[in-house]
Structure formats: structure tokens, C-alpha cells
Design a protein around this nucleic acid. Structure first.
Length: 293
DNA sequence: CGTTCAACCTGGGCGC
DNA sequence: TGCGCCCAGGTTGAAC
């Protein structure tokens, strides 16, 4: 579920945990993935317990907690990939049985009196496809480095896209989901970006011209930026929420995603749903034209 | 290089 | 009611 805007909203919401100490770690029914730091859950909990949250960052669709070590030891990073249904929560979860990670938080260094910060951080994931990795500096590079993730969607340029996709035979919609090409776009935003760019999602990348790449890059930044300002897209119950369990508001701005058979807001033609690379694609067959170069 | 498929999981919705 | 099927915001690896 969460794409860049949702993950960015999570990260911003986690600002209050920066500086806090991790007093306890539990991994009920979670998937801990192999990484250069490869402890089991027990050892992982032991390595994380007692560290302080130094920073919260986002790379693509990943949440990264930077954990400072005891003096003299190196930093570690907890990398969380929410995948389809994962949520970071500072409040009670929708259901207790789907909580995958519990970080019990204590006050900032040296302060325990009058502690009003968040008492715990939860990773809740109904489907359980999300992943948690503990990484050292090398592992962080392997998990989130430039070999894995392309330029961030909020800053991507036409030159970035053109350099990576110009000669690709893939359909542009499929290519926009490739995190090595551009990091952070998922199924909702790919559809919305291409609608606003007026480009048919089936267009082969190699058929696109400079003007197309300019439009796609500009709309990528605009759509993702607007979605961040509206705190992401919440569709349905027990779906994406902010860390306080509030709903996002960008779903009201969706022009094509999830709107099969409804009239296009621009031309009135029914929105079409097709399948590309095993994923639904929504577009307006009239407003979005096929690039043929 | 690219596409397709299965797999990883849970749960809501729909037709019968 | 119940069953089977399809669907879902993501990613990976194998097969072709």
C-alpha cells in the first residue's frame, strides 16, 4: 500500500521519536530478512535495545531508523519496508494480532521525569508481506543504495528518467514502477502521473521524446508533492493511516486510479482498466495518447 | 534484455 | 450461510 507519499508522511510523523531511547524490542510474527547483519530476532532485539533513535529517514518506500550505538560502537540502521499493508503507528493498532514490531521508547538521554514523548512505536502489517532489516553501513548501502534505488521521486528530473529508460522496450507504466529507475512510485501514483502527463501507459519508453520525459518528471514531482501535502492516499478500512491513525486526503484527488468505468473528469470518456505486468492500470483512452515518436 | 508466473500473506467483496 | 474465486497501494526469483 504505502508509496512515497505515505512513507514520507510516516517518517514526518515519527519526528517525535528522534532522540528517544529504545528500552525494549519485540518482533511478534514478523519477517526479519537476511542482511549483512544477520541476527535472528532475539539477537536483533539485543543489538537494538538500549540504542537511541538518531534520525528517521526515507529512501524510496522504505523507512529508515538510524540507531546510534553505545559510545565507541558503530551506528546501525533499522530498515522497514511496509510493502502492501504495513503501517508505522504511535497509537493503538487496528488489530493487535497483526503487530509485527514493538519498540518501547523511553525519554531522551538523561531525562526520565515528565516524559511526554511517544511511549512506543509499532509496525503493524495485516498481510505480513512487509520486511524489517537491521543493517550496518554496508548493509544499508546494499538495502537502499543507488544500485537498488534510483533518484527520489520528489526530485527526479527528465534527464534522470531519460538516461535510465530512453532505450527500454518496456511500457512506461511498468518502467515507472521500477525502483531502480525512480524511487517511490507505486501503482496509484504511476496511474495519476501518466494521466496528468497525457501519456498512454502502454507507450514503450523508447518511443518517448524529450517533451514526454519533461512532462513525466514534472508531473511525478507535482503529484507526489501534492500527495505528501495531503498526507497520502487512504482507500478503505484498515488501510493506510498516518502514525496517529488519521486518514490521508489525496484519494479525493485521484483522477483515474480505481475509477474503471467512471467518466474521465476532463473528457467524459469512461476510464479503462487493463493489466500490465500483473498489475491493474487505469487510464483515460481519450486524454492519454500513445507515443509513437 | 524483457515478460510472465508463482510466491509471500490476509481479508473484503461478489456470484452462486 | 457457505464456498470458491477475484481483488488489493509491493517485491523477488525462476522460467522462458
Amino acid at each position: 500500500m504505502p508509496e512515497l507519499p505515505e512513507v514520507e508522511t510516516m517518517c514526518r510523523g515519527l519526528a517525535p521519536i528522534v532522540g528517544r531511547r529504545i528500552a525494549a524490542v519485540e518482533f511478534p510474527r514478523s519477517r526479519v530478512r537476511p542482511s549483512p547483519v544477520r541476527p535472528g530476532r532475539t539477537a536483533l532485539a539485543r543489538r537494538v535495545t538500549g540504542r537511541h533513535v538518531e534520525a528517521v529517514q526515507r529512501r524510496g518506500k522504505r523507512v529508515i531508523l538510524e540507531l546510534s550505538g553505545p559510545s565507541g560502537s558503530e551506528a546501525l540502521w533499522l530498515v522497514v519496508e511496509p510493502r502492501m499493508t504495513g503501517l508505522m503507528l504511535l497509537v493503538d493498532p487496528p488489530s493487535p494480532e497483526h503487530v509485527r514490531l514493538v519498540l518501547t521508547l523511553a525519554g531522551p538521554r538523561g531525562h526520565s521525569l515528565r516524559d511526554h514523548g511517544p511511549r512506543r512505536l509499532l509496525f503493524w502489517d495485516r498481510r505480513g508481506l512487509g520486511t524489517i532489516r537491521l543493517c550496518d553501513a554496508r548493509g544499508l548501502e546494499a538495502a537502499c543504495g543507488s544500485r537498488v534505488l534510483g533518484p527520489d521521486g520528489l526530485q527526479v528530473t527528465a534527464a534522470d528518467l531519460e538516461a535510465r529508460l530512453r532505450s527500454s522496450r518496456r511500457a512506461i507504466k511498468v518502467a515507472l514502477l521500477d525502483q531502480r529507475a525512480v524511487a517511490g512510485i507505486g501503482n496509484i501514483y504511476a496511474a495519476e502521473i501518466l494521466f496528468r502527463s497525457r501519456i498512454d501507459p502502454r507507450s514503450a519508453c523508447r518511443r518517448l521524446r524529450r517533451e514526454h520525459w519533461e512532462r513525466i518528471a514534472a508531473e511525478t514531482r507535482a503529484v507526489l508533492g501534492e500527495a505528501v501535502r495531503l498526507e497520502g492516499s487512504s482507500i478503505g478500512d484498515e488501510t493506510y493511516r498516518t502514525v496517529d491513525a488519521r486518514v490521508g486526503r489525496f484519494q479525493t484527488r485521484h483522477r483515474v486510479y480505481g475509477r474503471a468505468d467512471q467518466k474521465c473528469g476532463v473528457c467524459g470518456t469512461p476510464i479503462v482498466r487493463i493489466v500490465q505486468a500483473q498489475r491493474a492500470t487505469f487510464f483515460c483512452p481519450r486524454c492519454q495518447s500513445r507515443a509513437r515518436r
